[in-house]
Amino acid sequence: MTESVKVWSLHLGVLALVFAAQYVLPPYHATNLARIMVLAVFAMGYNIAFGYTGLLSLGHALFFAAGFYGMGLPIGLLDWAPVPALILGLIAGGVLAGLVGVLALRTAGVSFMIVTLMFAQAGYLTLLYLNTWTGGDEGFVVDRAARVIAGNDLSLDGTRFVAAFGLFAAAMVGCLWLVRSPFGRVMVAMRENEERSRMLGYDPFRIKLIALVLSGIYAGAAGAAYGLLFGYVGASFATIQYSILPMLYVLLGGAGTVLGPFLGAVLMFYLVDITSGYTDAYLFVVGAALVGLVLFAPRGILGNLRERFAPWLP
């Protein structure tokens, strides 16, 4: 079996399993899985910037929110149809990532983290400031009638699952293709040794900017889909917590692995869901997971797996 066959059969197999899960899982877990898939797309986007290109951003909530509101506002205020609204959300994520990238990529390391954090905070405050249109902290409900695409009502569990799966599958295949492409390898080169790549004739700024824009498109698509599939748009999704969330998923699942963000999202979701049944302080568990991960498994689950058993894992 060639490496390529191995890689593709693994990922397509995972996709097939996830798709089949809707027929097996009880309704509660099926809907959770739909949520997790959308959040995993967000995390995959984060992974493109952080895991592959080495850009540790603390501002991805901004790009998620760009998609969230880029989809929600045209529907809420201008009665747009869902498909163009979704596309606008996706574009909004990419454009905002581009704008932030042009400025933030002049810095690196800690400064980059703080600059992205500050931009995201400014974005969150802007949503509050423009409350006449955004509904501020309270947000608004996406009209159920607007959540129908070509006769498919996205507020129905089955349709929603398929829609979330469609996005998830496209995102995963896209990610896999990207990281195995020559450009993907240049991205990794940026992460590993920027100076050397520069000497080889690559323009690090350009590469990193493209990676960040791609990452923003993923985040925007996830935001737009989350709002449309679950029917609510509000500013709490633009807070710093939603910048930390994808980082957590990626670190847990394995930075720089295609499946890592999804695995991390599944584990984290159920960690919170289950521990909140036993303790008020379930965020303590989140904190402990973060500390434990950077201490004992900085490469995450799949990262460690790759190191030991499966060096071919993309």
Partner: peptide, 8 residues
């Protein structure tokens, strides 16, 4: 992570 732990 410490932030969350201390806060909670």
């Amino acid at each position: 992570g410490l932030l969350y732990m201390v806060q909670q």
